[in-house]
Amino acid sequence: MSVFKDAGHLFRFAGLFVLAFLLFLVIRGFVVPKTFGQYGHYRGAAIGEVGAHPIKFAGHQTCEICHTDVLDVKKSGKHAHVNCEACHGALASHADDPASVTPVKPDTAVLCARCHTASAAKPKGFPQVVPADHSNGLPCQTCHNPHSPAMAAGGAK
């Protein structure tokens, strides 16, 4: 057929297209990650990789396994629902190796003030003080036990 003969160059061009497309498919087969599409249009393995991030906050459940004495003080007081690491900071390293990683006791002057410094912006029912007026410069734990802060008789040690 002479039409095919005269359109031969077009078939060559089309052939290049097909060739490029096949090459694309082959490369695609190699480079697309194996778990892509496992759950949706993404790399399924990524979920596990994100989930493998190291933990820094051990969680109060972990602390409470050993520090039952503190839990006993805490659970009847106003700070019953304040988790250990809210004040003591991230201590997974301590849970990992309690013998060699010893946490530093937080400075109550900074720690208590962070939450309890009086400000009109805070919810009205939340206990607030002006630190300078409140304690005459004495550290908070002179009167309050941070684990159970109410000033009942003998509340502070």
Binding site: V3, D6, G8, H9, L10, R12
Partner: peptide, 19 residues
Amino acid sequence: MTLGSCNISERSLAIDERV
């Protein structure tokens, strides 16, 4: 760039024009 085809007959150019 010719893709190895030197066919520039009337007819092939007419096809080119149309395409």
